[in-house]
Deep mutational scan, measured.
Amino acid sequence: GSKLPPGWEKRMSRSSGRVYYFNHITNASQWERPSG
């Protein structure tokens, strides 16, 4: 298991139950796992 880039964390969408990734530094969110 590799770590996520700085700022990123795994989140669960309440509406759909899907996992997404959220960056608390930039407030960005995306479905794809961030690389870096």
Rank of each mutant, 00 (worst) to 15 (best):
G1E: 14
G1F: 09
G1A: 12
G1P: 11
G1L: 10
G1Q: 12
S2N: 13
S2Q: 11
S2W: 12
S2L: 11
S2T: 12
K3E: 14
K3Y: 11
K3V: 11
L4M: 08
L4A: 02
L4R: 03
L4I: 04
L4P: 15
L4Q: 02
P5V: 02
P5W: 03
P6A: 09
P6M: 08
P6W: 10
P6D: 10
G7A: 05
G7Q: 05
W8S: 00
W8A: 00
W8L: 01
E9S: 08
E9F: 04
E9T: 08
E9W: 04
E9G: 05
E9I: 09
E9Q: 08
K10P: 06
K10D: 02
K10Y: 07
R11K: 08
R11F: 07
R11N: 02
R11T: 03
M12K: 14
M12V: 15
M12G: 04
M12A: 09
S13Y: 10
S13A: 11
S13G: 07
S13Q: 13
R14I: 15
R14M: 15
R14A: 15
R14F: 13
S15K: 15
S15W: 11
S15H: 15
S15P: 13
S15Y: 13
S16T: 13
S16N: 12
S16F: 08
G17Q: 08
G17Y: 05
G17V: 04
G17W: 03
G17K: 10
G17I: 02
R18L: 08
R18P: 01
R18M: 06
R18S: 05
R18F: 06
R18W: 03
R18Y: 05
R18D: 04
R18N: 05
V19T: 09
V19L: 07
V19C: 10
V19D: 05
Y20S: 00
Y20Q: 01
Y20N: 00
Y20L: 02
Y20G: 02
Y20W: 07
Y21Q: 00
Y21R: 00
Y21F: 06
Y21P: 00
F22A: 01
F22K: 03
F22V: 05
N23A: 01
H24N: 11
H24F: 13
H24S: 10
H24I: 14
H24K: 13
I25T: 08
I25F: 12
I25D: 09
I25L: 10
I25S: 06
T26N: 05
T26W: 05
T26K: 04
N27W: 08
N27S: 09
N27V: 04
N27A: 08
N27D: 04
N27M: 13
A28D: 06
A28R: 14
A28K: 15
A28Q: 15
S29A: 13
S29M: 15
S29Q: 09
S29W: 15
S29R: 14
Q30W: 04
Q30F: 04
Q30H: 04
Q30I: 04
Q30A: 03
Q30R: 04
W31E: 06
W31Y: 09
W31D: 06
W31M: 05
W31V: 07
W31G: 03
W31H: 05
W31A: 05
W31K: 06
W31S: 06
E32L: 08
E32F: 09
E32P: 07
E32W: 10
E32H: 12
R33H: 12
R33F: 14
R33I: 12
R33Q: 08
R33T: 10
R33V: 12
P34G: 01
P34L: 01
P34T: 01
P34A: 02
S35R: 10
S35M: 12
S35I: 11
S35F: 10
G36D: 13
G36Q: 12
G36H: 12
G36L: 12
